[in-house]
Amino acid sequence: MAQFAFDAHAAAGYVERPPRQVPGLEGLHKMAALLLGEYVPADGRVLVLGAGGGLELKALAEAQAGWHFHGVDPSADMLALARQVVGPLARRIDLQQGYIADAPEGPFDGAVCLLTFHFIGRAQRLETLRHLRSRLRPGAPLILAHISFSQEEPERSRWIARHAGFAEGRTASGAALDRALGTMGTQLTILPPEEEEAMLAEAGFEGISLFYAGLSFRGWVAYAG
């Protein structure tokens, strides 16, 4: 599957960027651990797609001392960063360079994919979700969170302006908005929430619920049917 992979330049400042760009990132990690913990046993195995950078791996491993993780990411530079970030927690974490189709078949007790799906093209979204579903035991939770908002104007431009301005504390306008519109239009694939939920259902997930919303970001929990 042709998907975006971060290079060394992008990886270099990654640890600092998400907390500035994602509203309530620490809370998102805590909620992910909570929702997984409802179904994942104390010695469970969790699949993490888009694991490069290691921020969610570190948070989840600290939250649950008995869980083991398999992280997959297409970027060798981001995986190297993840190894630094998780530190001694690495003894419970296996990291693999590749895409979801390269991941072990499982079955896993849960899966997480945070801040990744907006880098996956529309044509690959459903296939990616089906790969995730096939690697989960029945009833296992998937935690999914990324950029998602209406693609109808003027809502689309308004949400991009808010997204671009969050780190600066004010809504983007003028040249800053033009740059954001160009960047997000060429580098990201953003779908409306209703399409995201329809794809989850088509891929075989049930009990789909929105649990997180922070400006341009949305998060869902769904269960393998």
Rank of each mutant, 00 (worst) to 15 (best):
R156N: 07
R156A: 11
G53N: 11
Y39F: 14
A123F: 10
R158Y: 11
S150I: 02
Q151P: 01
R83K: 15
Q64Y: 13
R170N: 07
W67V: 09
D109R: 06
G53T: 00
V72H: 12
E168I: 00
G106S: 04
D73G: 07
V112R: 13
L95H: 08
L81Q: 10
A103D: 01
V72D: 12
S157T: 15
H70Y: 15
L49N: 09
R91T: 13
D77P: 03
E56H: 12
G71L: 13
R137I: 06
P141N: 04
A172Q: 08
A59F: 01
A111D: 06
Q96R: 13
R122C: 09
A42V: 09
L144H: 06
A164H: 06
Y39L: 12
H118A: 11
L144F: 14
G121E: 13
A161G: 14
H70C: 11
D102F: 11
F117P: 00
V48F: 08
E62N: 04
G50D: 10
R137H: 08
E62W: 08
H131Y: 14
A59R: 04
T128K: 09
P41C: 00
R162T: 09
A140V: 02
F119Y: 15
A80P: 05
V48Q: 10
I120A: 09
P154F: 00
A59C: 08
S150N: 08
A101M: 01
P141D: 02
G52T: 02
P104R: 12
L57I: 02
A59W: 03
G52I: 00
R91K: 14
A63I: 11
L136T: 05
V112K: 13
P104G: 09
S173N: 07
R133L: 10
A161H: 02
P41E: 01
E127L: 05
S157I: 03
D94P: 04
L114F: 00
A164K: 15
S173P: 00
M78D: 08
R156I: 03
A161V: 02
S75V: 00
L47C: 01
G87R: 10
Y39E: 14
R92L: 02
G98A: 05
D109M: 03
Y99H: 14
H70I: 07
L144D: 03
L129F: 11
R125W: 14
S150A: 10
R179I: 03
L114S: 05
A176M: 13
Q84F: 03
G44N: 00
R91P: 01
S150Q: 05
S148K: 02
R158P: 04
L142M: 04
V48Y: 12
Q96S: 13
E155Q: 15
L49H: 12
G169M: 11
G52C: 08
K58L: 15
